[in-house]
Design a protein around this nucleic acid. Structure first.
Length: 813
RNA sequence: GCCCGGGUGGCGGAACGGGUAGACGCAAGGGACUUAAAAUCCCUUGGGGUGCAAACCCCGUGUGGGUUCGAAUCCCACCCCGGGCACCA
């Protein structure tokens, strides 16, 4: 990179940016009057985790894109509220603290200070009066309060769930810490499954609503689709298979039409009926198998391509359709947490069942004849999972199409035994318990007499006790359990000595409601003020990374819905609009510390200025797709800003009306930039601004009249520089109190167009014509062109296609 | 395996519901200014060919087919890259 030499009077970003940072702060330009908004607009960006490495270029890319949107909205007359906070609890911070052997309570404030300073240099329109941190007791008091509201509503329940357990670390591992079934830290120690009592939020109760509402939301399609897949609705039916114990086995199936082909039943190893259905002579085998399953970690348990295993229980269930007795097996390819934990096996029409039948030599009965045939007309090989087929071997249903049979068979089974149509969701309840230190303690007390007692609201927050002893230990419970004085408390109900819940809650709970808190950060006596909430929420526009498309967005939607049902919020969806931004790579490769190709924002801001850096990030590609950062390119943006600066410095004082060509280009630019910023296509908006400036320059200079609208449209991208230029053109107010230029289509229209002439679809000439030229005139004009003549002469004109204002295509043959 | 994106010059990327492929920028080459360089300004720049020239012709948007007067854009098959899900019955 070349050192930039400053000529006197040249654009000096350092000075300009320092001046306006100070000025904005003094005049409180970025503070929003929350109590009296005219047109409130809540512009939300995903708050960052304040890592020790400092602000990442990915953060800057994300925030700048949101900021441009917010600043544009402000120029368009909205009262924009653009707050920011820090998502500072969680295992990420804790692990780092453990690594550098410093208390997270000490590290986090340092990191936040550094982040705040870095963020201020980027020139974001943040209203810092409403900053928050999830680690602040004044914040997590309300995180705990939300837990209590859900607890009271029966939406927070304690249940046993499998976790990954490393016998060497003697601790719970996250799925990511399990590598091919082994512990990340102990590569020769196998991780196995263990059951722990944990707190869950009953998000599955909301599955149908979370899914339905998706259709009404203005969200990126990709995000909606990911949420849809995550919720994973499957239409089907519960069917009952009677057993000798008197209790039937309930199975869930999406293919009730194939019930006549069910030749055995499978229970998950954890299924409660395994015990009573295991015959004496099979007991040893079944128990061994269940032990073997329990020794697996929960990741490899679910890997689909491993060989099927299973064991016969020795008992039989009756197929309700055929009346035949079929064997009951136990196999780990059936999962307890999905459906009913039991399935009917239809090997002819399910690949997994087919594989199992082949291995254990179980009968295969074809019940659907596919419409499709093989190349020689012979039937397709089994298994075949198609819906396009006709029932066979299915008694009175023979000949019916598979699709019709779904309802017919479900209804028939319902009338003669057990059967009911049902939609099953893949979504699981949300486990919020973490056996860790760095999070908000779950506000629950266990009393031997009174049982599970919620901490009374007036006792909130349950402050996370300060202790140097925060390392996870071999007990597998949270370090908080070791703090005797904290752990033992009087029961809020009966006063006898009781014990606190020692788990802390999931970071996703902290971030599931932070947007509700922003407007109300001044209130210490309520989570969110009803008046302010009514004025400012739901969020007008939310922009963030697609890495949070599933969990964070799903959880915050759920919490909002639950609070709505508790009549604490007047709306049930938190974000009117959500758009996902893309990711930035460098020189075509992912950025990573190990590759050493990470862009450090401070270095670029020092060298080029924040405005150039912001604008370059936006110029790399469509905001929603991301882009490829290359050091060579940034100079182009700086050159553009230099040219704007020069044009402003040279602008004549007395205003002349705009030349027609300039006026036309101006309106075309306003139209394009307005559209493009609306659609977050910042890259093409910038190129339109460049084209406009190029036009001004080729017209031999620019008046203030021509530059004012350019500066306003440039201001969201390069706020400091635009402010300075605005002031230099004699404006007293901040440019952000100016009004976005109006687009006039009539003024943007070109009178003369270049009409493309094609012969047989190939361009053979271009003629200038008026915009509204008729087909006859166009045809005459086209046939007058020498080159066109050459291609047409001596041939018969078969057809002429005329696209008004665009082209004429002469088809000859 | 399944579900989404995406493959366009030397590079990042443009191209409204099928209608001038390569906007804008980077890099490169040439020129002006300068003692010189930087900066700045002007010109050229997808590949190939014909012509002294003005011009003109052919090829070209991952690959192979198709639909159409006309395809980067629509359809079918396939290859590659990125992301998500993954024994979900």
């Amino acid at each position: 990179m070349n050192e930039l030499v400053q000529a006197p009077g040249a654009y000096d970003p350092k000075a300009v940016e320092a001046k306006w940072r100070e000025r904005w702060e003094e005049s409180r330009t970025n503070a929003t009057d929350l109590d009296h908004p005219g047109k409130p607009y809540f512009n939300l960006m995903m708050f960052p985790y304040p890592s020790a490495e400092g602000l990442h270029v990915g953060n800057v890319f994300a925030f700048v894109g949101v900021d441009i949107h917010g600043r544009t909205r402000r120029l368009q007359g909205f009262d924009v509220f653009e707050p920011l906070g820090f998502d500072a609890f969680g295992i990420h911070s804790e692990n780092y603290a453990l690594k550098v052997n410093t208390h997270p309570g000490q590290l986090i404030p340092q990191n936040i200070r550094r982040f705040r300073e870095q963020l201020k240099r980027v020139g974001l329109m943040i209203d810092w009066d409403h900053e928050l941190s999830t680690t602040d007791p004044a914040y997590y008091k309300w995180t705990q309060w939300i837990f209590l509201q859900l607890f009271k509503a029966g939406l927070a329940v304690k249940k046993s769930a499998p976790v990954n357990w490393c016998p060497e670390c003697k601790t719970v591992l996250a799925n990511e810490q399990v590598i091919d079934g082994f512990c990340e830290r102990h590569p020769d120690v196998k991780v196995h499954q263990r059951f722990l009592e944990q707190w869950f939020f009953a998000i599955t109760k909301y599955a149908a609503r979370l899914l339905e509402n998706l259709e009404t939301l203005d969200w990126s399609d990709s995000t909606r689709l990911m949420q849809t897949n995550w919720i994973g609705a499957s239409k089907g039916a519960d069917l009952e298979f009677p057993t000798p114990t008197g209790d039937p086995i309930r199975v869930f199936t999406t293919r009730p039409d194939t019930v006549f082909g069910a030749t055995w039943v499978v229970l998950a190893p954890e299924h409660p009926m395994v015990e009573s259905l295991t015959a004496a002579e099979q007991r040893a085998d079944v128990e061994a198998y269940r032990r073997q399953t329990a020794e697996m970690d929960i990741v490899s348990r679910k890997v689909g391509d491993k060989e099927k295993t299973g064991v016969f229980t020795g008992s039989y269930a009756r197929n309700p359709a055929t009346g035949e007795d079929i064997p009951i097996w136990v196999a780990d390819y059936v999962l307890m947490e999905y459906g009913t934990g039991a399935i009917m096996a239809v090997p002819a029409h399910d690949e997994r069942d087919f594989e199992f039948a082949t291995k254990f030599d179980l009968p295969i009965v074809k019940v659907v004849e596919p419409n499709e045939r093989g190349p020689d007309g012979e039937p397709l090989a089994l298994p075949n999972t198609t819906w396009e087929g006709t029932l066979v071997n299915s008694g009175q249903f023979d000949g019916m199409s598979a699709g019709e049979a779904v309802t017919a068979i479900t209804e028939w089974l319902e009338s003669i035994g057990g059967g009911a149509a049902r939609t099953q969701y893949r979504l699981h309840d949300w486990c919020i318990s973490r056996q860790r230190y760095w999070g908000p303690p779950i506000p629950i007390i266990y009393c031997d007499k009174c049982g599970t007692v919620p901490v009374p609201e007036e006792d909130l927050p349950v402050v996370l006790p300060e202790t140097d002893d925060f390392r996870p230990d071999e007990s597998g419970v949270s370090p908080l359990a070791r703090l005797d004085s904290w752990y033992h408390v009087p029961c809020p109900k009966c006063g006898t000595t009781a014990r606190r819940e020692t788990d802390v809650s999931d970071t996703f709970l902290d971030s599931s409601w932070y947007f509700l808190r922003y407007p109300s950060t001044d209130y210490s006596d309520r989570a969110f003020d009803p008046e302010l909430t009514k004025k400012w929420l739901p969020v007008s526009q939310y922009i963030g990374g697609n890495e949070h498309a599933v969990l964070h967005l799903m959880y915050s939607r759920f919490i909002t819905m639950a609070l709505h049902d508790l009549e604490l919020l007047p709306f049930e969806e938190p974000y009117r609009s959500f758009k996902a931004h893309g990711t930035i790579v460098r020189d075509g490769a992912k950025m990573s510390k190990s590759r050493g190709n990470v862009v450090i924002p401070d270095e670029y801001i020092d060298r080029w200025g924040a405005d150039t850096f912001r604008m370059y990030l936006m110029f790399l590609g469509p905001y929603q797709e991301g882009g490829d950062f290359r050091d060579e390119g940034i100079a182009g943006i700086r050159r553009f800003l230099d040219k704007v600066w020069t044009a402003v410095s040279a602008a004549p004082a007395n205003a002349a009306p705009l030349a027609p060509t300039v006026q036309r280009k101006l309106h075309q630019t306003v139209g394009k930039v307005t559209d493009d910023t609306e659609g977050l296509r910042y890259n093409t908006a910038i190129s339109a601004l460049m084209e406009y400036l190029n036009t001004l320059r080729s017209e031999g200079g620019a008046s203030a009249e021509a530059l004012n609208p350019l500066l306003i449209m440039l201001a969201p991208f390069a706020p400091h520089m635009a402010e300075e230029c605005w002031e230099r053109l004699g404006h007293g107010e901040s440019i952000f109190d100016a009004t976005w230029p109006a687009y006039d289509e009539a003024l943007a229209r070109e009178d003369e167009i270049e009409l493309v002439v094609q012969v047989n679809g190939r361009v053979r000439g271009r003629v200038t014509a008026t915009r509204d030229i008729t087909e006859d005139d166009a045809r005459a004009l086209a046939l007058g062109d020498e080159t066109v003549k050459k291609h047409v002469d001596g041939k018969e004109i078969r057809k002429v296609i005329f696209v008004p204002g665009r082209l004429i295509n002469i088809v000859v043959g």
